[in-house]
Design a protein around this nucleic acid. Structure first.
Lengths: 335, 335
DNA sequence: CTGAAAGCGCTTACAG
DNA sequence: CTGAAAGCGCTTACAG
């Protein structure tokens, strides 16, 4: 059953290098006092034997795992892959490894959580649309710091770093008002996430302020296909808006498709469209969508910085950070 | 520094339950001989104290970590998120947790690998376009089994489970021949991956067999935007093919966009297009792309099954598995 | 079925 | 700067 694996221990290295086991251990702990000469001897022996310190044994004594649990989204929303990549390599730079916490909404099977806490993660980064309160409470119970990435779940009291969605909403309103729009719609998905609500609020407040009109809010779905009917209704009514600001690029593209292919509308002349996320498809020839880019790299870096700080400093306080977004003007809005 | 965390140990539980520490341990090892009565006492005490066995301590004695390293892609190709989700939850069902092995191609920084081996993963699943030979060799050295998911890297000798790409190529050829196509192009990305080459070969062989013509192979890129020029050339020449089979859906959509928006062609009347992957965009109104769906769920399940088997049975042999793909006919091919 | 004890591979005071 | 020894929280023969 037990495969041989790499069974080289610090004792083996010690023997080969002619030093004690504790000395070998010290060599691999940054900042320990070891003479340059023995350090070299040990390194050589370690390399010869292909020695790797056993992280489990280390964790057992130090009481820190240098493992971060990552809660990730279940949707295959295109943006998320990069997120994982960014967070994981940022974490690695700080000496942490990433262990996945797969989180199924639909399954009631609670076994999923306990499992992962057997590994004593030092902290949790929640980059998930489905991170929920149960997991959050588990973390609290075990006194594990958590930071939410790019979103914040209602009812949780953890650190988070998100894009400045309110400001994004304002910018969208400004852009549309500048081009003379007087009637606008905010098209949203079915679940009112905090970030999405913020964006809506910014949009509405700013548009009211500038244009003296309150944008209508229309609820569709976050899924392209299941939004189509709502969009058809939205566009065919006699009170069709001059512009629609969408909660996601997917939604915006659904609007474009229906507008052009089914209603024969011209974009941006008959209808202006703004998305959110800047997924790869936004720059395709068929779309050229005006949208907002979130600075995921910065979000990743900041959330890692926060979690590490939270781990190292016992009583560092919660931090809530807003990162600015970038408006990318393409061909679906007037200039 | 050391946060208190959950510091409840089996000793604490033992005391509360009035049994020995070894008994507590046994209770949490499936199949151990413990009387039902003490089992209950221990469970109660454990629940009261919110006890979780420490996986690190366990690993230290059992010499297995129940941790699988997952090498994941750096590209944000839409399909991959689901992959991660599938693999990770499949692994969880088998009692394994997933630790990420972020693999950067561009960085020469070799520190990335050693780090992860400190955690003594029991096995590695490589679901990456960038999984390379260095990592593969590291695994060999440590005697860690690896299985490649949905792809296979040249020069490696590990188990893998992939889609039957040769057959997919054949099916594409059959479909096109059936609709009377006599000139076809296989449009590929810049890197000739094994799976892609297989598909090309199947397509060419079958098309030659049926139509008596050899399809031309044109090399573009896997990226939409950087493929555009190649596609323009391909379509504007007087020898424009009647059909093009593309290595990815992205590529196929680039072909569609250029054909319709720039060349004024009708699809499928003037040009038939087949993609590969069945990404969400394929069913959008603008595309309705005929393509192939890989059975990622099955791929995930099989690769997990293989890796687990490889771990448990010392000398189980390599397994190479091909899973059939499914042709999805939409509107870009004739009936 | 249960307990006492050794051991897994490290880190970390404690001496020297 | 270095070594001997205790201890981290488990599992697992070994007795009973």
């Amino acid at each position: 059953m037990n495969s041989p694996k790499n069974t080289v221990t610090s004792k083996d290295v010690a023997k080969l290098a002619g030093v004690s086991q504790s000395t070998v251990s010290r060599v691999f702990i940054p900042g320990s006092s070891v003479s340059e000469k023995t350090k070299q001897k040990v390194f050589e022996a370690a390399k010869a034997l292909n020695y790797r310190p056993n992280a489990f044994a280390r964790s057992l004594t130090t009481n820190e795992s240098r493992l971060i649990g990552l809660v990730f989204p279940d949707a295959d929303y295109p943006i998320h892959m990069k997120t994982l990549q960014l967070i994981s390599s940022e974490l690695q730079k700080q000496g942490y490894s990433t262990v996945l916490i797969p989180w199924q909404v639909d399954e009631k099977d609670n076994h999923s959580i306990p499992n992962i806490f057997q590994y004593r993660v030092d902290g949790v980064i929640a980059a998930s649309a489905t991170f929920n309160k149960t997991l959050y409470e588990e973390c609290e119970e075990f006194n594990i710091p958590v930071v939410q990435y790019a979103r914040v779940v209602e009812g949780t009291r953890s650190s988070y770093v998100i894009s400045d969605n309110y400001e994004a909403g304002q910018q969208a309103a400004q852009l549309l008002h500048k081009t003379g729009v007087t009637s606008a719609v905010y098209l949203t998905g079915e679940v009112p996430t905090f970030t999405n609500v913020e964006r809506k609020n910014g949009f509405i407040a700013e548009f009211e302020e500038l244009a003296g009109q309150t944008p209508r809010v229309v609820e569709a779905s976050y899924d392209y296909t299941s939004s189509l009917d709502t969009i058809r209704e939205l566009l065919q009514t006699s009170q069709r808006p001059e512009a629609v600001f969408c909660a996601t690029d997917n939604l915006a593209m659904a609007v474009m498709d229906v507008a052009r292919l089914e209603c024969g509308l011209d974009i941006p002349d008959d209808l202006q469209v703004i998305g959110f996320d800047n997924i790869p498809q936004t720059e395709w020839l068929s779309y050229q969508l005006t949208t907002f880019r979130q600075d995921f790299k910065r979000l990743a870096r900041e959330s890692v910085k926060i979690i590490v700080d939270q781990i190292c400093n016992q009583n560092s306080s919660l931090v809530k950070m807003m990162v600015p977004v970038k408006l990318i003007e393409r061909k679906t809005t007037k200039v």
